[in-house]
Every structure is written in C-alpha cells, then in structure tokens.
Design a protein around this nucleic acid. Structure first.
Lengths: 108, 108
DNA sequence: TTGTGGTTTCAAAATAAATTGAAATAGGTA
DNA sequence: TACCTATTTCAATTTATTTTGAAACCACAA
C-alpha cells in the first residue's frame, strides 16, 4: 500500500504505524473514557449532572426541575451513577444525589 | 411537596429551584456538549481520534491501524468530523485526517 | 399493620445508532 | 478514453438505547 508523501516521513519518525499505535493509551483506559462520554451523551443527563454540580438534590426536586416521569428520571440517574459521575445517599424517605469529584470535572 | 431539611436551606440560598436552574448553562451549549460526548462514546472513535492526535493519517493507514471495513471506518470518521473533532484534507488521491484544536482537548 | 410519599425495577414498545455489502464518486494514470 | 485506487454514500439489517406504565420496594407515620 502506498502512503501519501506528506505524512510518510512523520509516520516513519514515530516508528511507523506500529510505533504510533504503541503511543495510544491502553484499551481499558479508552473503554473507560468512552463509557463516561456515553453517560454524558444525552442532554438530559448533562442537565441532571450540572444541576447536581450546582447543588445536591433529592429525586423529587430534580424531577421538578426537568419535568419527566419518575421511571425515566430514575433510568438516567442510574446511567450517571453506574459510571461514577454521581452518587446518592438515603436521607429518611429521600435519596439525595450529588455530583462526585469525577462528575464535577464535566461541568458545562 | 416536602424537601429534605438537609438541603432545604442551601436550595433557598441559591434562589430556590428556579435560582438553581438559572445557574445552568443555556440549553444550546448543553446540547452541543452532549453531541461531542456522543461522538466520543464509542471506543473505536476514541481510538481513531487519539491516533489522529498523535499523527495525521490517511484513511488507509487508519484502516490498517484498526482493522475494519472501509464503510464502517468512513461512518465513524463522519461522526467525528460532524462535530468538529477532526478534519480531512484532500491530498491527491487521499484524504488525510487530523485532530482539530477541539479534538485535541479530548486526548486520553 | 396499614397507609403514604419517594424512588426503583421490570418488561414491552418505540426510537436511535451501528454494521454490512454493494454501488457511487473523485482524483490520478496508462 | 478507460481504468485504478482511495474513499464515501446508500439502503437494508442488526443491535443498542430510551421511553413507558405498571408493579414493587423502602422508610417512616398513623
């Protein structure tokens, strides 16, 4: 296979394609990152996370902020929780969610 | 609706739920961000972007790096391109892709 | 206990995204 | 012109995610 001359030298300097591939982060790290991106790939979840960065809230207040059925909200909370962007603490009858340290890195 | 006492005061300090919602970024910005996250939500695309951050490459070299059919690769390139993470420049017979300034912010 | 408000879980249906292979395009060459 | 290589596009299929509404769960109070 031919390689365009304009990149040929640079690729060779980096040890060819193999050398370039070796410079990539390990697969696990890439997969982990893409999971976080997936959790944030929905505007609703982005909004929820950012609300919780501003202020920890019980589910009922989140629900009031972004109008949607309980089960839908619960689903999106679970996606955010699954990859460690938010956490929930039970407080009497409520569960109060807050953004984690990781989650706070994704403030918009 | 009742609000848990533990957050009640903090919420009020911030102007109630309404005040908190006003602190959110505007909808368009949130949507734009979530599109970027969506583009990065697939490990393949994460890998492609990171290859291109290391070194601009023609499609045929990317294809050699991460073995997959042309049309599949082309699809993923288009997703990354659509939201401005990468750009392609024609050079004779080839198209050479590179990470944009925006794209480079997402290096793993 | 029974009831109630707050929240999650579940399975089914709806929607969106990814994969495939074939056909099309575009630039360059014989 | 006809042809070749690199790449994209398209439509059909497969797979994954989201939405829904009903049922379950859980902590607390009457």
């Amino acid at each position: 296979m031919e390689v365009p001359d304009i990149i040929k030298k640079d690729v060779e300097k980096k040890g060819g394609l193999e050398g370039i591939i070796n410079l990539l982060a390990v697969e696990d790290k890439i997969i982990q990152k893409s999971k976080i991106h997936h959790a944030l790939s929905d505007p609703l979840r982005m909004k929820i996370l950012n609300l919780l960065i501003i202020q920890p809230l019980c589910v009922c207040l989140i629900k009031e902020a972004i109008d949607m059925p309980d089960s839908k909200l619960s689903y999106h909370l679970s996606v955010l929780k699954e990859c460690g962007l938010i956490e929930g603490k039970r407080r009497r009858n409520w569960i109060i969610y807050h953004a984690t340290k990781l989650g706070k890195e994704y403030k918009v």
